[in-house]
Design a binder for these strands. Structure first.
Lengths: 330, 330
DNA sequence: TGCGGGGATGTTGACGTCAACATCGCGGAG
DNA sequence: CTCCGCGATGTTGACGTCAACATCCCCGCA
């Protein structure tokens, strides 16, 4: 900055004023300063700026498995919303539940240059042990931290109810369920809601089929389902597992939706292009991302005051061709 | 820090030594300092640290559409690799090609607290106008910056050749192509390689069908392809478009691969679970991500010296059920 | 002609950390 | 008994920026 000031024949303060768009700089002076900046390839040092101002204009995002649909779409929305608010996003991943990794994440976090933190689906139970720096504004989505920290999340119960009701209305005596891994909070919530809805309508609750979010696990479940003619409707806890199930059923010539109706959860972009197009529940990741940032920004601005501890974003049932009227198999 | 020092009855410097794990601190002193830190909830100020050390332990990532398969998987790999090297990742998105957005990105970039920059698929031509801060180590992948900057990218030519050869060996007289958007570099490269391979084998080069990466565009292309019995093999520039095409063909009772063979590119996780399972080219995003970080770190360490300007990561053909022997239609 | 006022620019110091250097105290060798 | 050396700890200043305050100059009005 001093070099620029010298070259432009002004003081450092004037350079600072130009950088920050202050009004009280003569156009002629401004010109000289900008020329000097270009000539020297100057760009302001953000560390010094942050040190001086005490703010980083950056928010941290803790995500679990970034490439997974929900995560990547939420992160994308968070990045966009943050950018609109003049902030950048720093990514911190806590993929492995090992204590070493967690300690590392905590350390990294505590020295990180962030004004606030968004925790997206830190699902693993061990993550709950993560010590958060005091006074750091935080918002969470679908994580074990829910309840303890302000949260924005999908209305899992509502979405699940919509699927189950839809399938029962089609005449199916009951609905089977391929669940997500039990250490995942959304998986547990969806499973619980499925069970409660069946009970509330006096239907028998079939044994849960345990999956792990991957298509492979849905595919594996398909073998059992194809062999059991009592199964006529399956609600999969996410679209990937539903895709695996569909393929397994095709391979065994079980017709969808003629023999078995299949529904998913998430509405991944490809859901409409599976065969048959998948009935599923759409999560509005963009809305969630935006709300997360809004909520966080409110906290940052108000110095940690939390307005709402629980925001639900509705999840809509999208009916496509993979679900149809009940027809006994065999 | 001063508060901690006072409480522990030491100087600030000793606190600093404890923070950074210096050897020359008596265990007893260290204990006192750590207790004081805990009591006060102290964590070091990263801005001051960065200001002092001149390094941020952070790399920036410019991505285009984060939620898209290639991007999110590459970013995930970059984040992991960076973490292993003790660095964090800051995300900067340049989704829109408008000049305003670019200026904004440039500004944001110039004041960003990063030690290096990874540019992932900044495809839009206008992005080339982005002014990068001088002396900032940079690596790119699949972007318009290739050639000008050190790059790590998928062997698009090799992957494309493998698909085209595979389809020709199955007896198809030629291969049609649904291309990605023309402002995307990988899309242009794949299209060109497809054309060259057909020519090299003396096959007629059919008119290109223009897509835009989305499944919807593949679906739209499906109407034309279903109606044209001369089409027996289609190479789609990505898996999403292939998925759209498959659905369009099913709806019109065109058998895959009986009537038409379909191949994609990317090997998204769901590719194996489309119907029929999709023949495609696997991109090793994890390898690319890791190499990007390695290359960038080398530059950061050596003060900007670039060893290699072009690293190619092989792309392997994955043959599944969506491609089969040629059989004339109708 | 002198004085007040306001806009443009300059000067100073502080943000929190850490490298470099200074100091202190203790034990062992001569 | 003295002095040297070394390990533990303390002191100082600088990193780059910007808020607050100081200064300067020019203009208009009495």
């Amino acid at each position: 900055m001093n070099d620029v000031a010298r070259l432009a024949g002004v003081s450092g303060q004037t350079v600072s004023r130009v950088t920050n768009g202050s009004q009280s700089v003569l156009p002629e002076t401004r010109r000289r300063v900008i020329d000097a900046m270009d000539a020297l390839g100057y760009s302001p040092n953000s560390a010094a700026r942050a040190l001086r101002s005490g703010t980083f204009d950056t928010i941290g995002v803790i995500a679990h498995k970034l490439a997974r649909t929900g995560e990547s779409r939420t992160v994308e929305a968070v990045v966009e919303a943050a950018r609109d608010r003049g902030h950048t996003v720093t990514l911190i991943d806590v993929d492995s539940p090992s204590t070493a990794r967690l300690t590392e994440a905590a350390t990294r976090l505590s020295r990180q240059a962030i004004d606030g933190l968004v925790i997206i689906r830190a699902e693993v139970r061990e993550a709950a042990r993560l010590t958060l720096p005091r006074d750091l504004p935080v918002v969470v989505s679908d994580s074990v931290f829910m309840g303890r920290l302000p949260a924005v999340s999908t209305d899992q119960e509502g979405g699940t109810r919509a699927v189950v009701e839809h399938l029962l209305e089609l005449g199916h005596p009951t609905v089977h369920h391929i669940a997500g891994p039990s250490d995942s909070l959304p998986a547990r919530v969806r499973r619980l809601a499925w069970e409660q809805n069946l009970r509330a309508r006096g239907r028998t609750v079939p044994e849960v089929i345990q999956g792990d979010w991957t298509s492979e696990s849905g595919y594996a479940a398909g073998a059992r389902i194809a062999a059991d003619p009592s199964v006529t409707a399956v609600f999969c806890a996410n679209d990937e597992m539903a895709a695996g199930l569909l393929v397994a059923l095709h391979e065994r010539s079980v017709d969808v939706p003629g023999d078995v109706s299949v529904a998913g959860f998430d509405d991944v972009p490809l859901a409409r292009f599976l065969w048959p197009p998948l009935t599923t529940v759409r999560q509005s990741f963009d809305v969630i991302g935006r709300r997360l940032v809004d909520t966080l920004m409110d906290q940052i601005r108000d110095g940690g005051t939390v307005s709402s501890y629980r925001q639900l974003v509705p999840a809509d049932l999208i009916v496509r061709a993979s679900t149809g009227a009940h027809r006994p198999r065999r």
